[in-house]
Amino acid sequence: MKTSHNAIQALMEKYLEGQTSLEEETLLQRYFNDAENPIDPEWEWARDVFLYAHNEQQLKVSLAEPSTRRSSGISWMPIAASFALLIVTFFGVYRLQEDYQERKMQEAYAETKKAFELISKQFQHAQEQVAYLDYMGQTTKKIFK
């Protein structure tokens, strides 16, 4: 494709004013990126700019897919997580119950101990009383002998 120097001149003027259409810009880009075309020294800067733009268009990245589950088949993570949660909950409840029972037993033990202590105290008291009575008895015997 032959594009005359004058045509390029006119297009470049429009280009610099921001008045070119996308089609005209494609034409310019093709013209400047074609190594066959002898580029006027006046337009060397433009060739560089269009080449640069062309290279930029080729710049590609491949980003990791955004971390939203794209459901290809069954995803096992939620299932595994549910199981883990279930097991943890089960053991938790089990342990809680064990703790509760142990606490209950300890409480019962403490209560019983308290009761026994009370009885033993009362018993000691009674013994003292009995010892006193015994002493009284002996004294009485001595007096009335």
Partner: peptide, 27 residues
Amino acid sequence: RLRKVDDAVQHLPEKQRLVWQLRDVEG
């Protein structure tokens, strides 16, 4: 030479740079 163009583009104020990118690169 391409680096020179790159420097020139990066030298633009941000909005001009964006408009240029949207038009002359992204079309």
